[in-house]
Amino acid sequence: MDYQSTKQSEIQTSHTNLFKIKKASQWIEEAKNRPIPQMLFDVFWHEGELCILFADSNVGKSILAVQIANSISKGKSIAGFRLESHLPQQILYFDFELSDKQFETRYSQNFSNHYPFSDKLLRVEIDPEAGIPDVYKNNYEAYLLHQLEIAVVEVKAKILIIDNLTYLGSDNEKGRDALSLMKQLKALKKKYDLSVMVLAHTPKRDMSKPLNGNDVSGSKMLMNFCDSAFAIGRSTLNSTIRYIKQIKERSTEKVYGDDNVCVCNIVKHSNFLEFELTGYSEEREHLREWTGKALNELDQQIIEIKQTNPELSNRSIADKLKTNHMRVGRVLEREKDSITLSES
Rank of each mutant, 00 (worst) to 15 (best):
P203R: 14
I159Y: 07
L194D: 04
R327W: 11
N110Q: 10
H325Q: 11
K186M: 10
T240G: 14
F230I: 11
E10K: 09
E129Y: 11
L341G: 00
K186V: 00
R34L: 14
V152C: 03
Q109F: 15
I150A: 11
Y107D: 08
S338M: 04
V66P: 07
S281E: 08
H269G: 13
D119K: 12
I161D: 00
I302Y: 10
T16P: 02
I161Q: 06
A79H: 15
Y3A: 09
T323D: 04
V261G: 12
F272C: 01
F225L: 14
I72M: 05
G75D: 09
L194T: 05
N314E: 08
I232H: 11
L295Q: 08
C262R: 14
T308Y: 03
Q147Y: 00
I63F: 06
R327E: 00
H146C: 04
Y167K: 10
K204R: 13
K336F: 09
L53M: 14
T6G: 05
S85R: 15
E274T: 05
Q26A: 06
L122M: 07
I305V: 03
K306T: 00
S9Y: 13
R106I: 10
L145V: 15
E30R: 13
E276A: 14
R82A: 15
Y167I: 12
G80Y: 00
Y167D: 01
E276W: 07
Q8W: 15
I150Y: 03
Y3M: 12
S219V: 11
T240K: 15
A231F: 12
Y243P: 01
Y107A: 01
I126P: 02
S239G: 11
D177H: 08
G175Q: 07
Y280N: 03
F41I: 10
G257Q: 03
E274S: 13
I266D: 08
M223L: 14
S108M: 02
E311H: 12
V196L: 13
F225M: 12
D56E: 15
S9F: 14
S338E: 11
G213C: 06
I21S: 06
I11V: 15
S99M: 02
K23L: 12
N172T: 08
H15W: 10
G60P: 07
F96D: 05
L277A: 14
Y115P: 14
E276Y: 12
E30V: 15
H15A: 10
D299F: 01
N164M: 02
W290F: 15
L312H: 05
N265C: 10
I305R: 05
L211C: 01
K7S: 05
I266G: 01
S73M: 03
S14D: 04
A151G: 01
K191A: 09
E311F: 10
Y3L: 15
E297R: 07
I36P: 03
K74M: 14
Q307L: 05
S235E: 09
E333T: 15
E97D: 11
A294S: 13
F272R: 03
A200R: 06
S112L: 06
A229S: 15
K101P: 03
P37A: 14
L332E: 08
N70L: 04
Y243M: 08
Q89V: 06
N70Q: 07
C226K: 04
D42R: 01
S62Y: 02
A65D: 05
K101C: 05
D177I: 02
N271W: 13
A157I: 07
M182T: 13
N265P: 06
L298P: 02
A31M: 10
G175T: 14
K7G: 00
I303P: 01
D163M: 09
E84G: 01
T166F: 07
